[in-house]
Design a protein around this nucleic acid. Sequence first.
DNA 1: ATGAAAGCGCTAACAA
DNA 2: TTGTTAGCGCTTTCAT
Lengths: 329, 329
Amino acid sequence: MVRIKDVANEAGVSTATVSRVLSNKPYVTAEARERVMAAIKKLGYRPNQIARSLRSQQTTALGLIVSDVCNPFFTDVSRLVEDCAYKEGYSVFLCNSDEDDKKELFYLQQMLDKNVAGIIISPTQKTPENFALLGIDLPVVLYDRSVKGLDVDTIIIDNEDSAYQLAKHLIDNGYKRIAGIFCDVSTGYERQVGFEKAIKDAGYDAPQLIVTQPRIEKGYIAAKKLLNTSPRPDAVFTSDSLVLSGVMQAINESGLKVPDEIGLACFDDVAWMSLVTPPITVIRQPTDQIARMAVDLIMQRIENPSQASLHVVLKGQLIVRGSTQTRPA
Amino acid sequence: MVRIKDVANEAGVSTATVSRVLSNKPYVTAEARERVMAAIKKLGYRPNQIARSLRSQQTTALGLIVSDVCNPFFTDVSRLVEDCAYKEGYSVFLCNSDEDDKKELFYLQQMLDKNVAGIIISPTQKTPENFALLGIDLPVVLYDRSVKGLDVDTIIIDNEDSAYQLAKHLIDNGYKRIAGIFCDVSTGYERQVGFEKAIKDAGYDAPQLIVTQPRIEKGYIAAKKLLNTSPRPDAVFTSDSLVLSGVMQAINESGLKVPDEIGLACFDDVAWMSLVTPPITVIRQPTDQIARMAVDLIMQRIENPSQASLHVVLKGQLIVRGSTQTRPA
DNA sequence: ATGAAAGCGCTAACAA
DNA sequence: TTGTTAGCGCTTTCAT
């Protein structure tokens, strides 16, 4: 291993000068800088990040804690976060809390131990507890979900509005008995509110509702239940793509035709939504913007820890496809 | 921040003793150990991993370099690797080389700079160059793809056999003009070999072949081309799920019916494969085994760097679905 | 079984 | 503008 001292010797300067060159600090003559650069190149020197971190008490690593990496929405965002972060010179630790409060806390602590510069997280826990336990003075950005009572930078979409829009689209297209399956997370609640509002505004009876976890099997179970009620719903509104997978499995088994016998609408425009027959009408979340903003905010917060916290609300985009075709009245 | 010294003071011992307790070293009386534990608990002490790493010259972090995080196969594996690694007490840096040699080298260097304990990678570069440049004496595990001339632990599936099996299945089911789309990576080559062998063994003419990159758009372009030839292929065999997405888009646009007018077979049982109509016949790669083995091998290698390198070949599993239904002769 | 002290590789005061 | 030096928090000889 070649150390900073070796470079200093080779260039005939002190380690301090090498350090200054390394961090682009002023007060180095062009000539000295060049000699140092030459020495670095010649020796193939690469600074030891660990030593640097220990001394400077800061790292260029970010923690990315995702509530479920199986969910394509989150993998999408993770990929983009990783991309943006590396462009800023930061590397990212990926963690999967798996919708488990305990795991979330564990990872939060791990990240703290690793001295990450900041944490980007889609929180699993609904209360600020996990964050409080850490006495977090560390930059944190929440995305996808907010936590009541936790005043940190947050990026979400207008879940209530989007859900309202999506439900209204179903209503406008002639669906009458729209059942809803929502997830037991903050986004799920918000989407449920928008959904119920739209149903109410249309003057329909209170809809059938199921609240469950964002898992394929849960969607399957919920759909089985819904399809067995009578009168059967003529459309299913789901707040999560994993749940929709399960719903579709149940529908396929039942032999019901989409959209003629049952309409389908969902959140998240994951890849397969446009591949199935018929393709699925969705609210697309701007994953690229979410990721970009998340990294942006964390960078801002790292630079300026005391600025007032930002709450960014992005717009979901309704994408109409075959699964919600107009019904004959 | 509470330091080891604070704990030592609180417990009335030296930092060395605290360190011994921390690393479960012998030569500490039960009584001292208890006092230390109490002090740790009381002060909420958590060892500084960076300091520890600097001193001990080792970390408990792994680098996971993925050739394309957009590909569900890789996200699947990543998730599982992350899971297994954390169970072993290791955290993982996720990097996306994006099928780009330069990016791969960049990340390899980054990981080296970070002093990771090992690297798990699905290599993008086909030659050992990137690894050679680093003078890697670091534990490395290759997965999904092998690199000629690089003798390190490797986990792949029996691509040639699996492809042969999948092609033979098409042949057995009465498909006659099977076109193949393969990717320009080591797995793609191997799958192509198995495919061509099966075609040849069946006594068919040389099939139409397209070699391209593992991207949705590429699949779309390739399919457009294939669908315009005459006679049109009666089945398409693809080596990659992203490519298949593109192929399906093209087929949907053309109005062709699967499997009556065109059969479809692919590698990787990603989630939507069983959701589309008809569901897709695939070779399933055992992503869980791959991930588990990858972490296993890297752990072994970390413990015993000099052991002979292992080449694990796992079996792909043929899953027959509607997209390759028997054709009437 | 325990403690004193050196030092991992680097950065940042401070002195020159 | 540059060099000297202390020390980040920890582990690990080496003495005891």
